[in-house]
Amino acid sequence: MTAQNPPLLMVEDLSIAFGTEEGTARAVEQVSLRVESGQVVGLVGESGSGKSVVSAAILGLLPNTARVTGSVRFQGTELLGRTESQLRELRGNEIAVVFQDALSALNPVLKVGDQLAEAIRVHDRSLTKKQLHERVVELLDLVGISAPEQRAGLYPHEFSGGMRQRVLIAMGIANEPRLLIADEPTTALDVTVQAQILEVLERIRDRTSTSILLITHDLGVLAGLADRVVVMYAGSKVEDGPVEPIFYRTAHPYTRGLLASLPRVDRRTDRTSRLYRIPGQLPNPHSRPEGCVFHPRCPHAQAARCDRERPQPSVVGDGHVAACLRIEEIG
């Protein structure tokens, strides 16, 4: 692919607001991000930071009450403002999603194999029953479900949580989409199963040309998997860069806080020391602070500056940007 080709997914200045009884809730403000072909991009943030709203916007799943500005381009074509039937062509075929809650995202009365087959048939009606079955078994095998032949005939409730999540991933990649959006795919799982699911995502990255937008609140998940990381806080993008500098040359105070609050086995803690936590709480989307959204919780905040001026993303390294006014001083 040459440099002139548009990126697979390009989100520019995306802002999303919802009118509510308490006033306007600005869920997402001026977020830009890009996913190149074959990349895994992590979108990190706390609950309520707007990361799931961004993914809903990409898929055109926002409710009618949302006010959306900016642009979302997929392979160079604008997605915002497309009709339902135009989006339907794309969904599942070019862009697919893996949901968070695997139990409720599977239909309890349909057999797992039939649901997978359904996902394929939505876009490809040319397959015979036999081919369809073979494809289903192949997909289940790819996501690491043993005895796929037999398990295709079982119902979701006969599967464990990790296996259900694998099925969802299989549904996501059924039509070999260009982009797979994984919305907290490991959140509901325990740690060992989490690792297995990440392994599946890794396998998809290595064996197919599918790009992955991995939405998570867990930076640790991204370390081994992502090529790039985008950090969101209170609806704004605070840092964006390749995975290594994000972890080792962290620029933004919020990202530093996030990293510091991860429990680590290689860092000794005695009984008196506690895990770091970022003081304060995520601001209410109805009344975001003036200036930098993070300043009320930021250890480096400077009066009369951080609470007035809105930081713009500034380049701090190769492909690495951070939105902080004091980036030079605190670096």
Binding site: L59, G92, A96, S104
Partner: peptide, 14 residues
């Protein structure tokens, strides 16, 4: 309102 309806929707089902 079930998630699998949304899931089918994002799979491109009519």
């Amino acid at each position: 309102e079930r998630a699998y309806v949304d899931a089918a929707l994002v799979l491109g089902a009519s």
